[in-house]
């Protein structure tokens, strides 16, 4: 098992290097010149050449990539002498626009993204799975049809639309919530929760719809399994039959997609954060894209990719714990 874990971690690292290479290639082969971006509008050709030298942009691409990888592992220094800029470990690049290394920019934004992602996840899991289970148990009923229509609505409504409607209703009309702002959970938990409710609902509406539909399908599938019939034939109470014998197998695929979704969200909920103006990783990405701050875009991409890949690994491990057939022979 430990050997397996080490191997999986090695594979994960390899995947990240590949993603790194791909994003690196895309960003540095794009027509926009990073040096131009770093320098600003009024910029002399000499200044650009100087920045190019500092960033190492005049060196061959593979060398640049190698430097970048080395930077991640051990930190690096851009330029020399008085102009030298230190980028400590783990160096995901240096934003010359904001004059700071990318890594601390990311980590300072992370708590907001985590707040949004985790809260929304709890909400959408609870609502989505519950709605799906009830729909499956009352297949074809009015509830089923209503829930599935709502789910379809939730899936198809764009986030910015939901977000704006929510803000109009809850903040402007009813005045029950403050406009979202950053309240650290450690200082004021209640205020934190209040400020996060709208982003949570916005995101959860999108995901709950998906989860309700998947749960319903999986439940219908597992309710039709022979072992559910066996459980009934044993004389188990219907609640036990559903919970123990139908729901548990049905949750297995949900674990998979939940891991993926959560991983992706931890890497930044771009639209939601932007709409509510919350300074999370997604907002950072949006701003960086708007400002063509390539080191930041690259950093966010890698950061988000790492979450997805690690979530993938976590899902596989959880699966091994949950499913005895996968666990079987180590």
């Amino acid at each position: 098992m430990i050997l397996y874990l080490l191997r999986r971690l090695a594979v994960t690292a390899a995947i990240l290097v590949v993603i790194c290479a791909a994003s690196f290639a895309i960003f540095y082969l794009m027509p926009a010149d990073p040096a131009q971006g770093a320098c600003g509008k009024a910029c002399s050709p000499e200044r650009i050449a100087e920045i190019r030298a500092t960033l190492g942009l005049n060196r061959p691409l593979p060398v640049q990539f190698w430097d970048y990888l080395v930077g991640i592992v051990s930190g690096r220094t851009y330029g020399t002498g008085a102009q030298a800029v230190n980028c400590p470990f783990p160096c995901l690049g240096f934003s010359f626009q904001t004059d700071q290394p990318v890594w601390p920019m990311l980590t300072s934004r992370l708590p907001v993204s985590i707040s949004i992602a985790l809260g929304a996840a709890v909400l959408w899991l609870a609502v989505g799975v519950a709605a799906g289970v009830v729909s499956a148990l009352r297949r074809g009923s009015l509830w089923d049809r209503a829930a599935m229509t709502a789910a379809l609505g939730g899936v198809s409504l764009p986030i910015y639309f939901t977000a704006l409607v929510l803000q109009y209703l809850l903040v402007v009309k009813l005045n029950v919530l403050p406009y979202p702002r950053v309240v650290p959970v450690t200082q004021d938990p209640a205020g934190w929760a209040q400020s996060m409710v709208m982003p949570w609902i916005t995101l959860a509406m999108l995901y709950a719809g998906v989860y309700a539909r998947i749960t319903r399908g999986e439940m219908l599938d597992s309710l039709g399994q022979n072992y559910v019939r066996t459980a009934r034939a044993k004389g188990l109470p219907e609640v036990t039959v559903v919970r123990r014998h139908a729901l548990r197998p049905a949750l297995m695929p949900i674990v998979t997609i939940f891991g993926m979704d959560l991983g992706a969200l931890l890497g930044g909920a771009l639209i939601t954060e932007s709409v509510f103006g919350l300074p999370g990783v997604g907002k950072l990405a949006a701003d960086a894209i708007a400002g063509a701050d390539q080191p930041v875009i690259l950093g966010v991409t890698l950061f988000a990719a790492a979450f997805v890949v690690l979530a993938n690994l976590a899902v596989d491990l959880v699966y091994a714990v949950l499913d005895p057939r996968v666990r079987a022979v180590g």
Partner: peptide, 25 residues
């Protein structure tokens, strides 16, 4: 009816693999 099932009338089905829940011992 549930009280009768399993206790006084029990059942064995055709395909034992699909009739046992794979997640429990």
């Amino acid at each position: 009816l549930r009280r009768l099932r399993g206790d006084r009338i029990a059942m064995v089905f055709q395909d034992p693999l699909s009739c046992l829940n794979p997640y429990y011992t």
